[in-house]
């Protein structure tokens, strides 16, 4: 009786083509993972792929869930990348990070999550104009909570 028709791990008996490695790196980034290591001791092969944790939101270790477009309005939801108390204004300033009408670039901080003594930025998933703010300042919000909507440029 066989439980699986295919092995969980594909054969790794020679190094993949550069394009294939590139594809794997893309998948890693999309999955929010940092590195992948394949090893075949018998064949003396080892492959390690590391993905930069920098700029694009998709590779951030606390990447928010994939931004979903509102089909009717074409809006893009801003979701929290972690849980914490929501802070819509900069602690040292009076003004909100991104009130309705504000123009934001992709990756701009549009809110903060306060956890204990730490603060985590909530980045804008796309460039555009803030059209709606649904998050309540000071509320304890969970991971993936929609706090505002952006009309992309």
């Amino acid at each position: 009786m066989s439980n699986r028709s295919e092995p969980l791990v594909p054969h790794f008996d020679r190094l993949p083509e550069p394009e294939q490695i590139g594809q794997m790196a893309t998948w890693l980034a999309q999955a929010g993972l940092e590195s992948l290591e394949l090893c075949n001791e018998a064949a003396g092969l080892k492959l390690r792929i590391r993905v930069e944790r920098a700029a694009p939101a998709a590779t951030c270790p606390h990447a928010p869930p994939a931004a979903q477009s509102d089909v009717t309005a074409g809006w893009v939801a801003v979701k929290t990348p972690y849980f914490g108390h929501l802070c819509l204004t900069h602690p040292q300033r009076e003004s909100a990070f991104a009130p309705v009408g504000a123009k934001v670039a992709q990756g701009d901080t549009v809110a903060l999550l306060t956890l204990d003594r730490m603060q985590l930025p909530v980045p804008a998933p796309v460039a555009g104009t803030v059209v709606e703010v649904t998050g309540q300042a000071g509320a304890l919000v969970g991971y993936g909570t929609v706090i505002m909507q952006i009309q992309p440029d």
């Binding site: 969970g142 991971y143 993936g144």
Partner: peptide
């Protein structure tokens, strides 16, 4: 989650 006094989504 529905029955809890406090419910918090902590991750994916």
């Amino acid at each position: 989650v529905h029955e809890a006094d406090v419910a918090l989504c902590i991750g994916p």
